[in-house]
Design a protein around this nucleic acid. Structure first.
Lengths: 109, 109
DNA sequence: TTCACCTACCTAGAATCTTTAGGTATATAT
DNA sequence: ATATATACCTAAAGATTCTAGGTAGGTGAA
């Protein structure tokens, strides 16, 4: 597993990226992030739900409910145009940051 | 400037790396990180000093005082063998994390 | 010699984020 | 009945960072 400190801060970027691919509900995001990372990234519900609420308050995402024929209703989230803008900015920030860190810790990877 | 959230978590890695190159004192670390990053990374003293104290408590670094012929004395920090071990681990964690994130946000950079 | 500024250390309190550790409810399988 | 899985949620604790100071020694200009 990754050091907890290292993982901090990039969760909102990850969530925005996944919602940019398709609408998802919270529980699905937790599972999907685990699946895609081979369980290396285990986003806790206690982090994800408040995080989603914050992103929605910032109007980067919005939600709609969808009843299911079986099981509890799902609260789907959709990225907004503003969210796409932020995603693009954050992604390029991420790359700049990685390049800089790799430079500082003496790696060309 | 980078998003504050993005920068979180890698400061101790950076500090250990710099101290692995040579002994430095706190104030020097602030300036050096700024200099090497072209002022993109501005480590605040309020973050650095408590961070150094924590690393020292974990016995990854240790300090010694050095009087100056002019100006205040300097508290130099030196990385310990344990610190070097942790640095190697954290560095490889960093690379693994970056590879994973780049995969998840769909980039080959 | 007074004032501003730089070096060099430090911390308390606020803000933010994550985890822990629950809770509620629906549906299915044993 | 009971366990398990889905699916939402939050309060409190823990960790880290920033804000916004403080202390002190030395330098340079007016």
């Amino acid at each position: 597993m990754f050091n907890r400190e290292l993982v901090k801060g990039s969760t909102s970027l990850l969530v925005l990226q996944l919602l940019n691919e398709r609408d998802m509900y919270g529980y699905e995001l937790v599972k999907e992030i685990g699946r895609r990372s081979n369980q290396l990234l285990q986003m806790k519900e206690g982090s994800l739900y408040p995080g989603l609420h914050k992103l929605e308050k910032q109007e980067y995402i919005e939600h709609y409910w969808q009843e299911q024929s079986k099981g509890p209703a799902r609260k789907y989230y959709r990225i907004t145009p503003e969210g796409k803008k932020i995603l693009a900015e954050r992604t390029s920030e991420w790359h700049r940051y990685v390049r800089l860190m790799n430079h500082l810790i003496g790696s060309s990877e």
